[in-house]
Design a protein around this nucleic acid. Structure first.
Lengths: 204, 204
DNA sequence: CTGAATGGATAGCGGCACTCTCTACTATCC
DNA sequence: GGATAGTAGAGAGTGCCGCTATCCATTCAG
């Protein structure tokens, strides 16, 4: 309960309707919002500040869904102070070019592309200078996944539901994806070199 | 530089060879390890404690690659104190059954399955009680991705390289995957409702 | 009228990732 | 040989973040 007060103070939850100077009323919408916040924090691993940004993006009324999705994506893709390797930047640009994407002259323009370039930069730094070869198969697999995401979102009724589904689908989806990827790795690994189940795996 | 001293103290880096009581020598291997640590922290977003676990898993000599992969996966899948929804647990079990996986009687046995169950639990809590419909298409896409990962790892020479590639591929791969997924979303979104580029997207 | 509870605001706490400082020593340059 | 600069190692301190505890005035129930 004190946590809720804290969230109210931080502006993550709208203030309740004051029925009297010391009694505020919170409706179903408040509860829903609270659960969304908890979901973003617990599963998405977002900081309070980031949650605030995401909520702001959600609450902006006068934007197209497409833009809103973009805003949410920007918000949840922290910049990470890694310095970019020019070669990694080139990798990203080449990837875009291959996909017939818009030019993407400046990778740092968007947090998402910046994040991608940063990841590839670090990969290079560790000596993995062909990590970008994975981009194409990744995209191939992700097209299937993104299509499923869109279908899922489309199955939602109201506009509010769609927006929330976008956020949830993106953030919880990331976590689910991570987990299922681990399972897929385990499956393939078992098929190739396998011995015994991977599940509990002897620690230490 | 003080950070390196800190990492040494925390046991993330092996102590250098003391050439004299106040002079230690660090070789290429140390540098490589340091860069790996920075990669795990910066891109993987792991805490110092988690990095220690991952390194411990890497450094354990007497285990099969398969088990080592499992250990790393366990280490980087934080439990998250979300309480599990029994229905979500059932979803996970049904998913396993569908894939002809090992029984998976206890979801909490592995951090990975626990993570998956936790994510689905939270989804249910927010009213998304059909999120598990996404599991199958996710796996379908991820099979392509996992295959690419395995091919990538197989292209590495020494055993040490393979192990590191596993870790890097898993953790940096997660980040890359996240970013590319955003791009795929943007692509599909543009195709469906699109207007204008998503990239910079007007914030606020 | 009294006691329990609430909203609002301020201050405090615990954990984490560093960062600073201090000591004891050594290697080096005049 | 002596002054200077540099390093290892260890403990304490710092800043931020996400809460949590306390306080006060009000107010509602009995």
């Amino acid at each position: 309960m004190p946590t809720i007060k804290y969230y109210l103070r931080e502006g993550l939850l709208p203030a309740g309707v004051l029925t009297s100077p010391n009694q505020a009323h919170y409706d179903e919408e408040h509860l829903r919002r609270l659960r969304l916040v908890r979901a973003l924090v617990d599963v998405g691993g977002l900081s309070i500040a980031l949650v605030r940004e995401v909520l702001a993006a959600i609450d902006t009324r006068d934007e197209s869904l497409h833009n809103k999705l973009g805003a949410v994506q920007e918000a949840i893709s922290q910049p990470s102070a890694v310095e970019l390797d020019p070669l990694a930047v080139k990798d990203v640009q080449a990837f875009f070019a291959r996909q017939g994407e818009t030019e993407c002259a400046d990778v740092t323009e968007s947090n998402v592309t910046h994040m991608l370039a940063a990841a590839l930069s670090v990969a290079r730094l560790i000596g993995h200078d062909h990590f970008h070869d994975l981009l194409d198969p990744y995209l191939e697999g992700l097209k299937i996944i993104a299509q499923a995401d869109v279908d899922y979102i489309a199955g939602r009724g109201s506009r509010d539901d769609v927006i929330e589904a976008m956020v949830v689908g993106t953030l919880i989806g990331d976590t689910v994806l991570k987990a299922v990827r681990r399972l897929a790795h385990a499956q393939v690994s078992r098929a190739v070199i396998g011995d015994g189940p991977v599940g509990p795996a002897s620690r230490n």
